[in-house]
Design a protein around this nucleic acid. Structure first.
Lengths: 169, 169, 169, 169
DNA sequence: TTTT
DNA sequence: TTTT
């Protein structure tokens, strides 16, 4: 239940690969920087103007796993969620605020190049060099064999205390 | 035209009277702090939880004039707009970011107590003491006789440079 | 999961009291006729024009019970849902199509006169004459003491076959 | 201005090429049948279920011209608009109702295969056989050399009276 | 059939 | 930092 409506709808492109981390519970959290842009003709000069807006979007649980598996820098997505402004502190104790979109519905819009149900090529036939197939069209499935388990590398974190970086984005 | 979608829909209540200022061009800009709240039952304790989210919403031009005339602390509104994160500097030169909703459509939801077409009482019959008629139900028309002209009081500003306070909200 | 987005958002007023029925399972289904209206100034004549659009909205389960308890002719509501066009047959076997909004989120917008958590007066103090308190402001709680059980009156239906009238609305 | 909100947001694929006609004024009107689908796992059988919903969407003026030029059967689009149910009569005088989405914002989602600013090949190099390049990826620009003028073929109509077919879709 |  |  709620008294009020808090809804955000975005269609944009990822500015970078998703940042996926795991909570102590094992639940994934994916943070995605999404660009939406608008273009218009300047009334005075008649020249085209463009403005890009960057959105910090956050996905939890199963949705975060799908983001990890299928989205990459450049991918186009539809997201639906709600605004949440979180308060945090800098190292010297100053208050800061960051506004995020907590996503509860997501649609991949690069469907012709693969998706949740697509298995584009077997693992042993997958391209190995990242530079050879970077971008939105590169399926990420072959890179995420451990997608439902916590990572053991530098992205792993062991407590809520250091879940957020000192400076969030 | 645009490549992308950037849409926000909110229904909430004003946390304070609108802050209305005027640009050098004479165009009004209204800033409104809007609260949306959600309530849910905690899975573990079974107790009701509530969380209020505050949104900084901004209205321009004609829409800002309507906000000035009809909205007050406590008013319930529907707003539709887009997200914009603006960068600003503190007095000591540090970067800060504030996310706002630039509103392009608004609906007042306290309709039974007045609206854009309502003229609740003639000017000379208007209540004078603010404390006597505070809140969402108080018609604001009688307080805004100069609604289409720049204010001459402390809210007036003469240049874009000081349009924003040092700390925006 | 889904491939696609199908979303409707309405704010409008009920043209009549909700039509609430019960499925054989005991689940409630509420049908509500909702009016949204738009007004604009005619470019040629300069006169105000108005157009009202009527929407057939459908609520299931718990949401239908809330509709039954709290909404009345004239009530203002926000609804969010999806479009569904259903095919049905007339008595002489002709195909017909009716488009509905299947609601999955609802907000009452007459909150100052009562709501889900409000208990405006004890049952024995409730007004009796309908004509005395008709309309959106009349709390419906006192009229729905049996709100979670199937009705026994003329609105009751005993099978899926006759769940829909021959002519749905 | 309006009292109410009437908003529809869809992401789907065209079930057929757009139907584009011209009003006596020369303004284009495009009608597009859009499919949105949702999939879910049946609770009892555990099998995947899928349901496709068809939407009749209507575009006017400049937007209709863009639809004519760039959208084809299979194209994926985002549309935003409002619901309108129109009443019409069958040849034997019976009333019928058809619900449409009047579109006021549209985004093509097959961006990597061309768009409003793309000119994929000069006119004299355009493929001629329709069967050679059917589907969403086929640029339509070469087929619409007269896109801002009324058509002279069978789609032309000379009066509002026969603007709608007897059976609209 | 609603609402302003 | 994306995309067209």
């Amino acid at each position: 239940m709620s008294r009020g409506v808090n809804k955000v709808i975005l269609i944009g492109n990822l500015g970078a690969d998703p940042d996926v981390r795991y909570m102590p519970s094992g639940d994934a959290v994916a943070t995605v920087s999404l660009a939406t842009s608008e273009a218009w003709k300047d009334r005075n000069t008649g020249e085209m103007q463009e403005r890009t807006e960057w959105h910090r979007t956050v996905f939890f649980g199963k949705l975060a796993e799908i983001v990890k598996q299928y989205l990459r820098k450049g991918s186009k997505v539809y997201v639906e969620g709600k605004l949440r402004t979180k308060k945090w502190q800098t190292q010297d104790g100053q208050d800061r605020y960051t506004t995020e979109i907590i996503v509860d519905n997501m649609q991949m819009l690069d469907s012709r190049q693969g998706g949740p149900s697509a298995v584009p090529y077997p693992d042993d036939a997958a391209p190995v060099g990242r530079s050879q197939n970077a971008g939105a069209n590169r399926p990420a499935a072959s890179e995420a064999p451990r997608s439902t388990a916590p990572e053991s590398g530098s992205h792993h974190f062991s407590g809520a205390a250091d879940f957020d970086d000192d400076i969030p984005f």
